[in-house]
Nucleic acid binder design. Sequence first.
DNA 1: GGCAAGAGCTGGTCCAAACAGTTGACCAGT
DNA 2: ACTGGTCAACTGTTTGGACCAGCTCTTGCC
Lengths: 223, 223
Amino acid sequence: MSDQLFARLRDQILTGEIAAGDPLPSERDLAADYGVNRHAVREAVKRLQQCRLIEVFHGGRTRALDWRRTAGLDLVVDVPGTLDAVSVPGVVHDALEMRACIGADAARLSALRASEDQRAAIVAAAAAYAEVGEDLEELSVADVAWWRLIIEGCGNLAYLLSFNSLVDGAITMEQASPELRSAELLDLDAHRELADRIARQDAAAAEQLARELLNRSVARADG
Amino acid sequence: MSDQLFARLRDQILTGEIAAGDPLPSERDLAADYGVNRHAVREAVKRLQQCRLIEVFHGGRTRALDWRRTAGLDLVVDVPGTLDAVSVPGVVHDALEMRACIGADAARLSALRASEDQRAAIVAAAAAYAEVGEDLEELSVADVAWWRLIIEGCGNLAYLLSFNSLVDGAITMEQASPELRSAELLDLDAHRELADRIARQDAAAAEQLARELLNRSVARADG
DNA sequence: GGCAAGAGCTGGTCCAAACAGTTGACCAGT
DNA sequence: ACTGGTCAACTGTTTGGACCAGCTCTTGCC
């Protein structure tokens, strides 16, 4: 119940139907309008508040914020397609572009900082990647796990959390039509080569190849 | 009430006091233990769920997730110091490093994509920056607004939302001790030069200078 | 006209109850 | 001894109503 109300209000704010600064209906009105209990409304409102989509004033009215200035990256995490189709066109391209930016720097830093065990794990994962087969669904999962190793290797928590947001959210759309990624996913040589460059601690070369790999998805999303 | 309970449970999960897979106490028990109403507990639980720190099963027990694999970037947005001091040391360094990564690429893309108006706004902001004075608090605010213009110029929503998360969260810690940043904030020439490179649409040069500027904060956080 | 008391909104908290799904123990059969 | 179903005791979900606390605008007095 509260989930549906949350999604509905969120979309109204994201689309501008409720503009920044506008007051939301009171909790009692929302409960009456949507035929739910006020406690369900409060749960939805709390979540909107945590997304920094609204501002709540005790005694006053709850108002929509300018989400472009306040909301965080977790906004893109949701039912695949909702944001891109309904509210914010182009968010998939943006998420892929950001993944490329983060992933390339993570590859660089991983080459510099990853422990011996972590580098070995990356090499092993690249080798195991060839065993996955050609099922694109499984390849996608393996691909995400592979990048996660690289990002964990660089030891930056912010990169890791961003990756979670991007993978759980918009990028899952891409998994829904994985044929778009088949070329990238099947490029076993590139995976092995990137693992090798990280293992050799050649930061610049690792960054370059990672960027090249990830930018393919961006280009594919554009075309 | 629910905010306090949320923060408490969140810290217990982040510190590992409640490990991944462990069940949380039932809502009724939590309400009794902390002396609050069950609805307050439910609001806190809903927020934890949205942060992807827990998984809720109707009829079953609520369990903690492995937040390193599921949580999003918005986790770093909180009362300044909580995460770094209590739960996750080093998150400020990580956030600054990520800001450098994002900011540099945004500067590059801004040089490529920003409209004429946006480029003019960036140049104007760089000029106006000199008028702010030497109050470090105000300079910090102006600095954030300045980078926001660049990130808006690149037109990537994911970058913008990430910037919001980073600025609202961990980086506000830095503002608490702005003397650390004074050298960077007072570097008017670098600001003007970066604006100029974006205005000239010299993407590579803009990226390089932006990275140089932002990496100073990272280096300062390290030292 | 200016100011203060109050009514009528807003969100914040609480109690109590019924609903719905899961789990596990228990007992009747094979 | 094992299998199968039943039931009671959990879990989260939703509802209703009541009251407190803070803001705002109206009202009415000075």
